[in-house]
Design a protein around this nucleic acid. Structure first.
Length: 261
DNA sequence: ATGACTGATGGAATCAGA
């Protein structure tokens, strides 16, 4: 089973690129972030015509997440990250698919830091850590994936010294990510490619893609029950080099679910 | 160190992204 995460940076303007990629790679599951569209503006018909069923949580102007499936329909089990009734931002969606629990997230950017946006990022992170602990404890096969807006280590940044004060790389942010990982999650990309330079995002500024000035901020984390099924992982880098691209590239894993028994 | 680009909104200029 192939599962991908892709921050599309606006599903309306990215629709042609998204459909091209879906047709090409045919992932079984695609988690999307930054729809930047209200609930009623999700291009449901075009997605259906491409062979996918979808659930989504839209929001006007910003945020927005979706889960697409090619086989069985996604069964929604959660909308919005638990822990703060007043948080109205559309950043979390959870679905049961083929016996797996797929969690699609868009963690806040948090810049400028310090400041209220950074505080929101860290608070959101704490809620995620609490929720993720429950998922781990359940023993269920879980994929926790999306745009985490965190570079976990220096290897994940083209020029670490320039990012130390940035919300995506500050010590507090990296520490939060480490605490999440300490629950027992498997960072699929890093596990399959230890020590390798892998990026999932390149800024639109200054020809960042051409210079390979990238960041690894989109992640797929596997619960212990699923980690042994990991067969392959990668980034569809070329998608970032096409016409009207998102600033993120699709990032994916391949699971061999036959091995779960 | 910043924001050279891009998208959404709304119909120009501003916010947000990372």
């Amino acid at each position: 089973m192939r599962i991908a995460t892709f921050n599309v940076n606006g599903i309306s303007s990215r629709l042609p690129a998204l459909l091209e990629w879906l047709e090409e790679k045919q992932p079984d599951v695609a988690c999307l972030q930054e729809l930047k569209a209200p609930q009623e503006k999700f291009p449901e018909d075009a997605i259906k015509a491409a062979g996918y069923q979808a659930i989504w949580h839209g929001q006007k102007s910003w945020n927005g997440v979706a889960i697409l499936t090619r086989g069985a329909a996604p069964i929604e089990v959660g909308r919005g990250l638990p822990g703060d009734e007043d948080d109205l931002q559309s950043r979390y969606l959870e679905a049961a698919i083929d016996g797996l629990l797929i969690c699609c997230l868009y963690l806040p950017n948090g810049n400028p830091a310090p400041g209220p946006k950074f505080d929101y990022k860290l608070a959101w992170f704490e809620r995620l850590i609490v929720h993720a602990a429950k998922l781990i404890d359940s023993g269920a096969p879980v994929v926790l994936c999306g745009d985490f807006n965190v570079m976990p280590t220096e290897l994940d940044v083209y020029k670490p010294e320039r990012w130390v004060d940035d919300a995506l790389f500050r010590p507090e942010t990296r520490a939060a990510f480490q605490r999440l990982m300490a629950q027992g999650w498997c960072d699929a990309l890093r596990t399959m490619h230890p020590g390798e330079k892998i990026y999932t995002f390149w800024d639109y500024f200054r020809n960042a893609y051409g210079r390979d000035a990238g960041l690894r901020i989109d992640h797929l984390l596997l619960s212990p029950a699923l980690a042994p099924t990991l067969k392959a992982a990668g980034v569809d880098r070329d998608v970032r080099g096409r016409e009207k691209p998102s600033d993120h590239a699709p990032t994916w894993i391949e699971l061999d679910l036959g091995r779960t028994g």
